[in-house]
Amino acid sequence: MRVTVIDIAKKAGVSQSTVSKVLNNYPAISEKTRDKVLKAIKELEFYPDLIARSLVSKKSKTIGLIVGDISNPFFSEVSKVVITNAREQEIDVIISDTDYRLENLEWAIRNMIGRRVDGILVASVDRHDTITTDLEKKGFPIVLFNRHTDDKGTPYVVIDNERGSWLAIDHLVKLGHSRIAYISGSLNFSTFHQRYEGYKKALTDHDLIIDPGLVYSGNTDSLEIEKFLRKILFNKNPPTSLYAATDQLAMIVIDLLTKIGFDVPADFSIVGFDNIDIASNPHINLTTISQNKQKMAELALKKLLNIINEDNDDLPYQIILEPELILRSTTRSIRENN
């Protein structure tokens, strides 16, 4: 049978209220009494009823984390950062994967609120979503990170995606590339939309033509991307480089180019975005844009906990981090190819 506070009190020879005070870290308990209670807890293998405690304290010490696709290395890596940092503060994390579908986001939010989470972090949201904004307006603690909505009515922590794209294109242009293709997921997400805007701005700033034929956005299935690559690589004026809006897409492109018969970077330079852990693997060594995912996740968690605890918040309502170009070996000067 489940061990109760009554059992602990009998074992330690103290009152139930004393046990409750020890469990809730009340300061006005002698060390001797505290030690007796803790010893009884250990011997009886007592596990506190967190649900019951949350009903009293109005806090569950649990938060929700909603990501787009947990199999995507970026989302798994930021999830690990959130979980590790939350655990250090004795906070549990419930994770849900939306598979980038609105109905799954709605279900995840309903489910988490039903489980009495204290607040929710959302790492993937559609630009036109109103669910998270409505929740924030109702006073429920919610913070977006990685992506945000167009109305920007919710606290968020993101990278300057437009600037990141500009750095990627600027790097390729300095290497002599003027025909630069762009591949991304749906522009309904702020990350891809802003990275596309940065791509166009960088081309314009360098007096280069924006060729719609070199742009792909939408379904990130490898078969669709392969169709696009074969279309642009074998026309009269093919690109010499490609900027992928995520590292995951960049690695798909590298695999496909190898399959088609090209070499990276000898035939084709590639730049990604995210700087996921595997990007630095010596067999990949991907040139990419870092969005400092660890700092982003840490700040998002800190922001959410400040809102939950109603602490004096020294963080801006919305935070935009600076990107960084990480140079590795998937880009090469055109002059080296000649």
Rank of each mutant, 00 (worst) to 15 (best):
L203Y: 02
D207N: 15
S57V: 05
T4V: 01
N275T: 04
N85L: 03
D92A: 14
S269F: 12
I169D: 04
I6C: 00
S280G: 05
K303P: 01
T132A: 09
I159T: 15
V253G: 11
K302N: 12
T33F: 06
S190I: 07
T331P: 05
D151T: 15
R87T: 12
T220I: 14
A40Y: 07
P155A: 08
T33A: 09
I66N: 06
N309K: 14
A297R: 06
I83Q: 15
T220F: 04
I169N: 07
T132D: 01
N292A: 07
L223S: 14
I308V: 15
I91S: 05
L214S: 05
E324Y: 01
D267L: 04
Y47D: 04
Y100D: 15
L325M: 14
T149R: 03
L256I: 15
G185E: 09
Y26N: 13
L325E: 00
E226Y: 04
G164R: 00
I70D: 03
M112K: 06
K201G: 00
D221Q: 08
T258V: 03
R127L: 13
I289M: 09
H171I: 02
E77F: 07
G176T: 03
F145I: 00
N111K: 13
T246M: 07
L321I: 07
K21Y: 09
D313M: 10
I252R: 07
F189I: 10
T246L: 07
D211Q: 09
D170R: 11
R2I: 14
R2Q: 14
E197G: 03
K302P: 00
S269H: 13
I183Q: 05
